[in-house]
Structures are given as structure tokens and as C-alpha cells.
Design a protein around this nucleic acid. Structure first.
Lengths: 245, 245
DNA sequence: CGCAGCCTTGACCATTATCAACGCTGGTGG
DNA sequence: CCACCAGCGTTGATAATGGTCAAGGCTGCG
């Protein structure tokens, strides 16, 4: 249970990370504003859980009995259609929460994208704790609003942006996500496969690949390796992301 | 200021409305769980505001000084790209809140779709009040999670559903939205124009029109008038919305 | 009655999906 | 240690979904 201490650590890292893509402010993790005694209480009802790449943390339609807080690693959250089409609704990293939504079954699935550790809370206990811990509730509210803004940006992207604009936006938004990997000057780490990027952007693998090639050909980015990208013309990329250029 | 009483009224209506499309439970408005004394305090810092069709309530990038609660009418929330492409991120009705997100400018615009009344709160005062009213904060958190679920459904729709599936989903989700207009047995009221539907579904006016015609031709729906639709084959519509059929 | 605004329908076009082939890379087993 | 294979990524050819452009119809209001 002591492992729960990983949460504040994750937060510290997050505070050091890049400015937030959504609100412009530095991203703050939930724990930032929570007193030690409250953390201790959280700790007392936490169970630690460890996952390896590909493990399923949450399966859509299962009874929603737990709430999770990621202490290390990264997770993909997605929804499926009956015929297998997949839409990834988000990538989560250290410090992020999962499964807070109301409803007695989960409305999405979640899988580990790498080695992951989480803290697990029984939902009932968690609810009680929240009710008695205004600081926690307040922090969760801020976080929820933040996610809502991000979701609205994604809705704009999926509803109205072209493939080129989507990929450009994606590349610009990525660095701010993973607190554990603050990216230096225009250097981007893509922790996900092309297929995952595609399912996040509402495109196919082929279109993502072609679009990256196109950006490379135009000299906007440089493909250092499959997972490492260097932005050569930040202004051009920004213009593309916003629908100009 | 007494007009703030319209809020509980809106909520009562909402409670009478159809089951929620997102969580399956009956939709609950924020005020449901708030004590009279807290409502009175809310009331004391509320300003009433009235709008007619087309009026702008919130303009993107303006300083975010106020929080709004809709007491009657309906509002469209949208984001624009530089070249004018519009994505409507949601339609809001009586009981809904706007502008709660953090950040010192609004990240979206909001316009009245008909005669609208809202209660307006200075954000600073509102924050203070929230902090001192756990029941309110708790209710807002529930509501935010609810909106997050809806946003994820919309992301799935925009990222992976075909035009036919989008329109079918839209028709099925609509009734549950406006608390003031609980729709009887398979009857749908479309309060928005084709253009607004299109900008909500990530399609063009023409595609929405053609798709409705197609559903009509297949006998799935009947177009009673431009704004009134009768579902003739609910099962078929549901199958289409889920990607079968 | 005529006009404006919205909707529908049709013809054509473009973007992106699909299908297919091939290349690269990393791991495994001979 | 090398060769093979599996999995992922890239590239090309073709197809389809939905967008664009254009014309015409309906409805309500002045």
C-alpha cells in the first residue's frame, strides 16, 4: 500500500512538465492541492495493481466496481463498435484517474500500453472518502473540466479537421501529455503505434503514415525513428494544425 | 433575482424527462441534491439575463468572467476554425451549466437557438460559493462526469461512424436532451436546422438531408414536418446507430 | 404575390478508405 | 551466428463515402 506514494511523485513530475495544451496553464495533477492526511486516507483504501503491455485494466460493460489512479506507465482508453471499429478516446499517464464516471458498468475499455502500475479503490469507499474530502472533490472537478475541454478539442478535430490538420494537431498536443517524459525543444516521442494514432485520430494506419511522410517531404518534421520525431518548422506545423497553411 | 427559482423548476422538468442516453438512469439536474439554503445563496449572487434567437451568450477567447445556468430555452455551443468551419460540440437546455471550465478565456462560443433565459454568476463569487457548498460541488462533479461520457460517445460517432450511423444515433439521442419537451413514443422534435445538425454530426447539410431521405425511403422514419420526425422502426434505427443493419 | 431562407435533389469531384505488395526490424530457433 | 518469421510501417493502385457546386422546390412573411 505504501506504493501509493507514487502518486505524489507522479504529480511532481507532472508539475515539471510542459505547459498544458488545453488551458495554457501548467498542468496540475489532482494531488497538488491535497493535504498529507487526506493522501494518507486515500492510501489506506488503495490496492496496488501491476500490468504488462496489452493487459486489460477495464473492459467495457463490466460492472464498474473500481476507480483507478495511474502511478506509472501509459494507458489507452477506447470504445468499440459491434464490427470491431475502434475509437481511442484518450491516452492516460501517471497521475490520471479512470473510472470515476457514474453508471454501474464501464462505458469504455482500457489497456496498458506498456508496463503500468495503478492504485485501485473500491468505488463505494472512494465515494465516501470524496464526500468527506472537499479538497479532493474540488481537485477532481477541476480535472474533469480540463478533460472536458480536451474532449471538445478532439470533437472539433474529428468533426471538422482534415487528415493533415489532425496529424499536425496531434504532434503539437502530444508532448504535454506524458508527465514522465517532458520533451525537449521540438522533440516528440510517439509512445503509440501507427494503428493507435490512427484510431485516436479517426483515420486509418495508411493515412497516418502517408501524412507523416508528407510532413517529412515538406520539411516540417524529421522522422528520427519510428517513435521519435523532430519538429523542424514549428510555425508551419502550428499553421497546419489550425487549418491555415 | 427571484427568477433564479426557475432553476429548480427546470430540474423538476428534467426529472420527469426520458431516461438518460448516457448512463441509462433518469437524468438528474444539479439542483436535485441541493438544499434550499444553498439555493438561496446561489440566488443571492445571480443576475438574470435574457436572450433572443441568435444572440451570443459566450464568445470564444473573451475573458471568462461568468458562469451561466440556463433556466429556459436552448443553446448551441461550438468552436470555429480560422476559415469558418464550425463544429457544434453540444446543445444545452434548461438546467445545464456553461463556462465552468478553468482558464481565463472561454474556449468556445455559445448562442441562443431560441428565446433563452439564464442566470449569470461572477466566476470569482461562484468559486467561493462552490468551495463552501460541498453538495453543489458534488453535484457539479457528477454532471461533469456525465458530460464526459457524452463527449466520448460523440468522439466515437465522429471518429468511426458513417453518415447513416451518425444520423441514426442523433435521432435516438435527441429526445433525452431537452427536459422541457419530453417526447412521446417514438416522436422526435428537431429544434435545430439541418445546418446545425450537420455541424454537430461532422457532416454537411446535404449529407444530413440525403440521409434523412434515405431513412424515410427505407421506412425507418417518417418526416412529419421539417422539425418533427416519427420513428416507424425503432429496432432498425437502433441497429443502424450501433453499426449493424 | 414575390422574395428570402431553408431544404432537397442531382451531377460531379476529392479526400480518405480499402486492398495489396513490399521493406524493415527484432526476436527466436536451428 | 545467421536465417527466418512475425509484426509493424510504407507505398501504390483503386474504390467509395461524403463533399462541392448547382438548380429547383417549399414555406412563411412582408
Amino acid at each position: 500500500m505504501l506504493e501509493f506514494k507514487a502518486l505524489p511523485t507522479g504529480c511532481a513530475e507532472r508539475r515539471r512538465s510542459n505547459a498544458c495544451d488545453v488551458c495554457g496553464a501548467r498542468a496540475l495533477s489532482v494531488c497538488a492541492s491535497i493535504a498529507d492526511e487526506d493522501l494518507a486516507r486515500l492510501d489506506s483504501i488503495a490496492e496496488r495493481q501491476s500490468l504488462v503491455t496489452g493487459d486489460t485494466l477495464i473492459r467495457a460493460d463490466d460492472p464498474a466496481r473500481h476507480v483507478f489512479n495511474i502511478t506509472s506507465g501509459s494507458i489507452r482508453v477506447y470504445k468499440l463498435l459491434a464490427d470491431g471499429r475502434r475509437q481511442i478516446t484518450g491516452f492516460l499517464f501517471a497521475g490520471d484517474f479512470l473510472g470515476l464516471a457514474t453508471g454501474d458498468t464501464y462505458a469504455f475499455s482500457a489497456e496498458a500500453m506498456e508496463q503500468v502500475t495503478v492504485c485501485r479503490f473500491r468505488k463505494t469507499e472512494y465515494r465516501t472518502l470524496i464526500r468527506e474530502t472537499p479538497a479532493l472533490e474540488s481537485a477532481l472537478l477541476t480535472r474533469a473540466h480540463h478533460e472536458l475541454l480536451a474532449a471538445q478539442n478532439q470533437i472539433l478535430l474529428l468533426g471538422r479537421k482534415t487528415a493533415l490538420e489532425r496529424v499536425a494537431t496531434f504532434l503539437l498536443d502530444l508532448p504535454s501529455h506524458d508527465p514522465a517524459r517532458p520533451s525537449p525543444q521540438g522533440h516528440i516521442h510517439l509512445p503509440m503505434t501507427r494503428g493507435e494514432s490512427a484510431d485516436y485520430l479517426g483515420l486509418t494506419i495508411e493515412t497516418v503514415s502517408r501524412t507523416l511522410t508528407r510532413l517529412k517531404t515538406q520539411g516540417v518534421i524529421r522522422l528520427v525513428s519510428l517513435t521519435e520525431i523532430q519538429i523542424e518548422k514549428p510555425d508551419a506545423l502550428l499553421a497546419l494544425a489550425e487549418g491555415n497553411g
